[in-house]
Write a protein that binds this DNA or RNA. Structure first.
Lengths: 344, 344
DNA sequence: CTGTTAGCGCCTTCAT
DNA sequence: ATGAAGGCGCTAACAG
């Protein structure tokens, strides 16, 4: 048990130095295994540090070294959504390998909150930011880049500035799932999706349309409902579609929230309607309903984003701070999707 | 668009001061709305700061002020578990109100990783730590407290040191759910739970035993399986119980991972076995199986933990750093549970 | 009202 | 192999 320290705070380099009978500098060197320190001295210093329970103050370290805090900012809209918590886990698992910690900021879809959050992360000197921006306006992210903080986007491409990003094959996945419904003979297919402002939502809608077009069909505008972000909204929207005079015989949902909502509507109406959706989710196999889902590795999305960021950070570190080396061009990684069939 | 800054880094107080034709001190004051600054000066400073895109360096600020970084460390074992992501959200929603950010550390059940993480958070001078420790050894948390970093435990009580904590009524919830099964006439009830080292697991097992004892029954040791942390492990364990010569007619599971695993086993065996479990979860109502769940507000768990921490931080702030005021005694909050029945 | 001095804890540079 | 000086960016405390 380390004894109490002078001022009630944590012990500093100087406290250790005093106890070991050396200068602060020697302690600093010894603790970082500087080979120039005499082994005997190093041991004495180590002993003193242990006795005091000394840990270098990372805040002071960051300030002195001038190179960030070893923190990665992660900006998401809703951590309660498994998609985002998976993403967070993926990011953390990769960056932790380089001794970085993840600071999670939850914005709750609020644009202004997101702006504030990003500014704050920059002010806190995070080493980099991984973001899933809520809206179309990404100027706050652009200015983070200008300020020298690398940004990686996940699941949405950068708008109006250059940045690495990791995307899901939204278009292809939606197209394939829709095509699967068409193969089964469906001709009136409804669409339930997130608000049009969300990139993934519009891409998935495009994929939906593309599949119909490829089959020589056009979507019926009355069968398209966008704007649902929570299952109960989706349930209502789906119920409305099912109540139409000519209801769709199948539904495609652009994310797990909508799929779950639609499932409940179908179950409640006891309707004979096929269901497909983007995003796999736990217990999808146990619903007693045939279900076609677009699956992808959401951990991998986070891991890939983490790797892109780490690469950028390495560039930052090695290359001179000046404009000596060309910045490497932005990279874009697309995570593939696959169709999964769950039995009914 | 802010112009580029002298050294390629972000602009500092001095850059702003130069541009505004005042001293660094005046900038510092003006930007913090110190009333002593002449309005005209303040405006000039603000304009200069805006032009440069200046943001105070929070790292330097923290070092100078000596009072933490405005970060709260959150230590959990598995963010992918909805329970923990909810908790995280609850914590964040509360501490964000005080301008604090949440740093999430995921330990993946690894004790050593947890030790390292906590030490690192302390070294980073987080203002406080909220933890769901993985194991029984909590000395690393105790020493964080010794180092002056308040710790709040969530879902497990402190062992061997004093700290605030928020608990779920593990004992009562498990007892009530088990009692419900007994009311329905079950006499051979199996138990599936997490490893015995986990506090919640043992408390819930105690509740299970208590309900049996209250009915004048004793548990059959062969019907108790602890150690499953993931659904597929639980599925295997449940399948083994169902295959016994005298299988249980009902199962009680100590968390959502085990409940989901048991559900699959029951479904696969098409067995006539009643199921109850701790933790509510999405789609529990859609499984086509009667299900009794112990529900509680996991967001609230996080919010309560956040509030306890904020209270401590306020004490820290107001009270002198010395031993002038008695530290307030540790508080313990118990979040109530309720039984939810899902239809079959 | 504004400026100067000093130092938070650490590490780079230059002595010794 | 070790120590002394200086400063990262900011702000309390004390001038003026």
């Amino acid at each position: 048990m380390p004894g109490p320290h002078p001022k009630g705070g944590q012990p500093t380099l100087r406290d250790v130095a005093e106890r070991a009978g050396v200068s602060a500098m020697t302690v600093s060197r010894a603790l970082r295994d500087d080979p120039q320190v005499l082994p005997a001295t190093r041991e004495r210093v180590r002993a003193a540090a242990d006795a005091l329970g000394y840990r270098p103050n990372e805040v002071a370290r960051s300030l002195r070294l001038g190179r960030g805090t070893g923190l990665v900012g992660l900006v998401v809209t809703n951590l309660a959504n498994p998609f985002y918590s998976r993403l967070a886990l993926g990011v953390d698992s990769v960056v932790a390998g380089d001794g970085l910690k993840t600071v999670i900021g939850n914005t709750g879809q609020d644009q202004e909150a997101e702006r504030e959050l990003v500014a704050d992360l920059v002010a806190r000197r995070v080493d980099g930011i991984i973001a899933v921006p809520a809206g179309a306006d990404q100027r706050h992210l652009a200015s983070a880049v200008t300020d020298g903080v690398p940004v990686v986007l996940a699941s949405r491409p950068p708008e109006g500035f250059a940045a690495d990003c990791v995307l899901v094959d939204d278009f292809g996945g939606a197209r394939d799932a829709t095509a699967r419904l068409l193969e089964r003979g469906h001709r009136r297919i409804g669409f339930l999706g997130s608000p049009p402002a969300v990139h993934t939502g519009t891409e998935r809608l495009r994929g939906f349309h593309a599949a119909l077009a490829a089959a020589g069909l056009a979507a019926d505008a009355r069968h398209i409902r966008q704007g649902q972000t929570e299952p109960d909204q989706a349930t209502r929207a789906a119920a409305e579609l099912l109540a139409l005079a000519e209801p769709p015989t199948a539904l495609f949902c652009s994310n797990n929230r909508n799929t779950i909502g639609a499932f409940r509507a179908i179950r409640a109406a006891d309707a004979d309607v096929s269901l497909a959706g983007f995003d796999d989710f736990e217990l999808a196999d146990a619903l007693g309903l045939a279900l076609t889902l677009v699956a992808y590795d959401s951990d991998e999305l986070g891991r890939a984003a983490g790797r892109l960021l780490l690469d950028r950070l390495r560039d930052h570190g090695s290359g001179a701070a000046d404009e000596r080396a060309e910045p490497r061009p932005p990279r874009q990684i697309v995570v593939p999707t696959s169709l999964v069939e769950y039995g009914g």
